[in-house]
Computed example of a mutant assay.
Amino acid sequence: MSSKAAIPIAIVGMGAIFPGRGDVTGFWRDVFEGRDLLSDVPASHWLVEDYYDSDPLAKDKTYGRRGGFIDPVAFDPLTFGIPPKTMEGTDTAQLLALVAAYATLQDIERDSEGRIDKSRTSVILGVASATELTAHMAGRLQRPVWVNAMREAGLP
C-alpha cells in the first residue's frame, strides 16, 4: 500500500436534460444517429396563432413554429429539501437545474465506484436570464403601463 499524499484533482461530470433520449449519453446517440428532434410547438407551451407569422419581418411575431422540447421531468421537491408549498414561486428552470445537478452527482458516484469525497465536491450551474419567472416579474412591473393604456382606450 502506497503512503503517497492524495493529489487534488477535479472530476467533471455532466448532467443535462435534452429533447429525445434526455440525458448526455442519449444526446450524443441522437446526434450520431442524425435524429431530428425538432417538433411543432406543443399547445401546452403557447398558441401558435398568437405568436406566429410566416413573415420574418412581422413585428412582435416569430416565424418559427418548431423547436426542441423536452419531455416532462418528474420532480419530487422533498428529495431536494424543498417545501411543496414553495413550488409555485420556483422557476421551472431552477428545478430542472437541480435534476441535472443530481444526475451529474449520480454520474460521478457511479464512475468513481463510490470513491468520492462529497465534502470536496461542488456543482456549478449555467444560468439563463430568460426564465419564466423573470419574464413574469418584468411583466408585473409593466402593469401601470397596461392600466394606463386601457384607460386611454376607454376601458374601466
Rank of each mutant, 00 (worst) to 15 (best):
D91E: 12
T86N: 15
P144K: 04
I82L: 08
I116F: 00
G139V: 10
E33N: 09
A138F: 14
G22A: 01
E109I: 07
D50S: 10
R21S: 10
S54Q: 09
S112L: 11
A97S: 15
R66H: 05
T104L: 05
D76T: 11
V127S: 14
V48W: 04
V24S: 06
G67D: 04
E88I: 13
A93I: 05
Y52T: 09
P84K: 03
R151T: 03
I11F: 05
M137S: 09
A5H: 11
P8D: 06
T104I: 10
N148R: 13
V31T: 06
E88W: 07
T90V: 14
G126P: 00
E152I: 02
E109N: 15
A100V: 08
G34P: 02
V41I: 14
G13R: 06
A153L: 12
K59F: 02
R65F: 03
R21K: 15
A93L: 13
G154V: 07
P83K: 14
W46L: 09
V123N: 03
P56M: 09
E152P: 02
D50I: 02
K61W: 05
P8E: 06
G68H: 01
D36Y: 00
R21N: 07
S2I: 03
M137F: 12
G15N: 02
Y63C: 11
T131S: 15
G81Q: 11
S54T: 06
A153E: 08
F75D: 01
D76N: 15
L95Y: 07
D50G: 03
G13W: 04
T134L: 10
E152D: 09
S129D: 13
G20Q: 01
S39N: 03
I17R: 13
A10S: 07
A153C: 06
P84D: 01
Y63E: 02
Q94D: 09
S39F: 00
E49M: 05
E113C: 10
P156W: 02
Q94P: 00
G139A: 12
P144L: 05
K118S: 12
V31F: 09
I17S: 03
T25W: 05
A149S: 13
S3W: 14
G67E: 03
K118F: 15
L95C: 10
D91R: 05
V31N: 04
P156M: 05
P144F: 04
A10C: 11
W46S: 04
F75A: 00
V123M: 07
P42E: 04
Q142S: 07
P56Q: 08
A6D: 07
L95N: 06
P19F: 01
A128L: 11
A16E: 04
A149V: 03
A128M: 13
R35N: 05
L78R: 15
P19S: 09
P144A: 04
V12D: 07
I17L: 12
D50R: 12
G154Q: 07
G68Q: 01
P84T: 02
G13P: 03
P83C: 05
F69C: 01
L133M: 13
T104S: 12
S44E: 13
P83M: 06
T92Y: 10
